[in-house]
């Protein structure tokens, strides 16, 4: 998948596969990334607004398949659990 090439990695503690779909301009997305970093959780992220049209379409298909709306940030954990929006409590639970 071309999207995989756009993943940016942030090193930390392995709590499973954590992928953050974000917008580079969004403060809630920024807070999400900062919280994960402060919790020292290993994660990958994609800034969706910086993707090409083809990549964006690919993401849309992926989200449709997962029944997830294009609202950001979206955190996908181990390809199954989804956290939409900056939900501090749920993000903190990831480190436990």
């Amino acid at each position: 998948m071309a999207l995989n090439n756009r993943l940016k990695h942030v090193a930390g503690k392995d709590v499973g596969e954590v992928i953050v779909y974000a917008l580079s301009t969004c403060q809630w997305c920024k807070k999400t990334k900062e919280l994960l970093k402060s919790l020292k959780i290993e994660y990958d992220y994609i800034d969706v607004d910086l993707l090409s049209k083809t990549e964006e379409h690919e993401l849309h298909e992926l989200f449709k398949h997962m029944n997830v709306d294009m609202n950001f940030p979206v955190i996908v954990v181990n390809d199954k659990d989804v956290i939409v929006g900056f939900q501090e409590d749920k993000i903190r639970k990831l480190s436990k």
Partner: peptide, 26 residues
């Protein structure tokens, strides 16, 4: 926090020609 939003609005202004919401995909 607001200054971060303002920066996002300015990015969108340059990119799209209008200040679309920085928390949504335009």
């Amino acid at each position: 926090f607001v200054m971060g939003i303002a920066q996002g609005l300015l990015v969108n202004q340059k990119k799209y020609g209008y200040m679309s919401c920085p928390c949504r995909l335009a």
